[in-house]
């Protein structure tokens, strides 16, 4: 018999004569304590994210590319990794061309194997979209895909994320329901709640452990 058969057989023997426990998931326990008035929702998200060293800006939707450029300029960064196949990627590229911005735009448009070294060591910053955010825990939802790969939010020391103000939900449970996650998940769904950190030495918090040292969230208000 295979290991699989043995394990399953042992487990089934243990349950002999018993019935599965009924499903008594009480969703109010994960929703009611985590509900916010619309005007408080973004404030909650913002304050939680700021507590873990995230920079958060709220701005009119049209202004974000200029803000990105300003962020790079202030930090004297030389390049920015972006996703050319996305709507915001195209918007960024158009702005960059018009403004004749001097930072290099690096398009994530080929498999990682072709430029691993460069991605690992030479990219200063990245910009990605988000699939919304969760106020209760101060988390961004990232839904990486073919156009906006997984490592964009992990390798560069600075990660800039765009968040639509209208896509902030109260809590994880509501987010799962609204976006119907069980119906189809991407290869790698992510919740990101701040820049990478560790407290493994004496419980002293240090940022930039393996992922981004800085996370900047641009909350875009509809015009």
């Amino acid at each position: 018999m295979s290991a699989r058969d043995n394990i399953l057989k042992k487990l089934r023997a243990g349950l002999e004569g018993s019935t599965p426990r009924p499903d008594q998931f009480d969703e109010t326990l994960v929703t009611e304590p985590w509900q916010y008035a619309p005007e408080d929702r973004i404030q909650r998200l913002r304050s939680l994210m700021e507590t873990v060293h995230t920079e958060v800006y709220t701005l009119a939707a049209a202004n974000w590319p200029a803000k990105v450029q300003e962020l790079l300029e202030n930090r004297r960064l030389a390049n920015l990794l972006y996703a050319p196949g996305t709507g915001h990627g195209q918007q960024l590229a158009e702005f960059w061309a018009e403004a004749a911005a001097e930072q290099n735009l690096l398009a994530y448009d080929r498999p990682i194997e072709e430029w691993k070294e460069e991605l690992f060591w030479q990219v200063d910053a990245s910009i990605t979209g988000t699939a919304g955010a969760i106020a209760a825990t101060g988390s961004l939802v990232l839904w990486p895909d073919r156009h906006e790969p997984r490592l964009m939010s992990l390798l560069p020391p600075l990660h800039i994320a765009l968040l639509k103000a209208s896509e902030v939900e109260d809590n994880l449970y509501v987010m799962m329901e609204k976006q119907n996650w069980p119906a189809g998940l991407p290869t790698n769904l992510l919740l990101v709640s701040g820049p990478s950190k560790t407290a493994d030495i004496e419980q002293v918090l240090a940022y930039g452990a393996h992922g981004p040292k800085e996370l900047v969230v641009l909350i875009l208000e509809d015009a």
Binding site: G14, L15, G17, S18, Q24
Partner: peptide, 16 residues
Amino acid sequence: MTELFYDAAPNATRVA
């Protein structure tokens, strides 16, 4: 969650 382990079948998975 009324079915406490004291009353359940011997093999039934317990709840607190």
